[in-house]
């Protein structure tokens, strides 16, 4: 284990996580107005209707696969009756199919972004940087799976990469676990770590706004003008001085109707 290993597999991931967390907090605090999915559907809908669901549902599958493969220890899986062989078959074949659907969706989306002039014109530099690392992570990960799991004899990342991730989570980082991992897996990890680093400064912030609350709230939302007045917080040093409250019966706030 040398200095480079420590930098790549301990320092860099922690920097990326710190950037991810703090970046989101700052963005939410200071740039709520810029917090959007930046949908371009209004410019072009036909290609998007294929590419976007393919990519998004695919990437959700990819995320689920990574949770199972990286965060759940092998012993737990075996406790539930998932043997090494069964896991390997599932992860390899479901993973490969999901990866290709995701990549196909991304290819549709990216070619749409390049070919449709209206969409190309609203693509920012940060978008391009983000797409680079997003596509890079996807492609490198898929190559690694195809090279080692499908064509090769199979690489047991659950003995190296997964414990390394968990060692980071429990603040007992062990860079040695990553030192011997094949290059393709290493590149995939580095590329996606960079993606997490730049995440809060890109349009990817919309991932954190998954509107689950919509399932549970009443249809019609009511808000009071009084309660909402001055949507921005008062800046420090600019707080208004207290005014004496006039002696008159206080306005009762109407209860929010529960439709």
């Amino acid at each position: 284990m040398n200095v480079v290993d420590v930098l790549l597999w301990i320092v860099f991931p922690y920097i990326a996580v710190a950037s991810f967390v703090i970046g989101h907090l700052l963005r939410y605090r200071y740039d709520k107005f810029g917090w959007t999915s930046r949908s371009s559907q209004i410019y072009e809908s036909k290609l998007l209707r294929w590419g976007s669901p393919m990519f998004h549902y695919g990437i959700l599958g990819v995320f689920a696969g990574h949770v199972v493969g990286l965060l759940v220890p092998r012993e737990w899986m075996e406790f539930f009756g998932v043997s090494e062989h069964l896991y390997h078959l599932g992860a390899t074949w479901i993973g490969t199919v999901v990866a290709f659907v995701t990549i196909a969706g991304l290819v549709i989306l990216l070619s749409r972004r390049g070919a449709i002039r209206r969409v190309a014109r609203v693509t920012s530099v940060m978008d391009v940087v983000m797409y680079l690392f997003l596509a890079g992570s996807l492609v490198l990960g898929t190559i690694a799976v195809v090279q080692f799991q499908v064509l090769g004899a199979g690489y047991d990342y659950r003995g190296s990469v997964s414990p390394w991730i968990r060692s980071l989570i429990f603040f007992q980082p062990d860079a040695a676990l990553m030192a011997g991992v094949p290059l393709m897996f290493q590149l995939h990890v580095l590329c996606s770590t960079t993606l997490f680093l730049i995440w809060p400064y890109t349009r990817l912030v919309h991932v954190l706004s998954v509107p689950i609350g919509y399932l549970f709230r009443p249809y019609v939302v009511y808000r009071s003008r009084d309660a909402h007045r001055g949507a921005r917080a008062v800046r420090r040093g600019w707080e208004p001085s207290d005014r004496p409250v006039p002696k008159r019966p206080k306005q009762k706030q109407p209860v929010r109707p529960g439709h």
């Binding site: 709520k32 959007t36 999915s37 949908s39 509107p211 939302v221 009511y222 009071s224 003008r225 909402h228």
Partner: peptide, 23 residues
């Protein structure tokens, strides 16, 4: 996102530009 709302006082329907996520 719950960004659109009807004002209790006068029923005007508005979009909270800070809450809208462009869905």
């Amino acid at each position: 996102s719950g960004a659109m709302y009807k004002r209790e006082e006068d029923g005007i329907v508005l979009v909270d530009q800070d809450d809208c996520r462009g869905w």
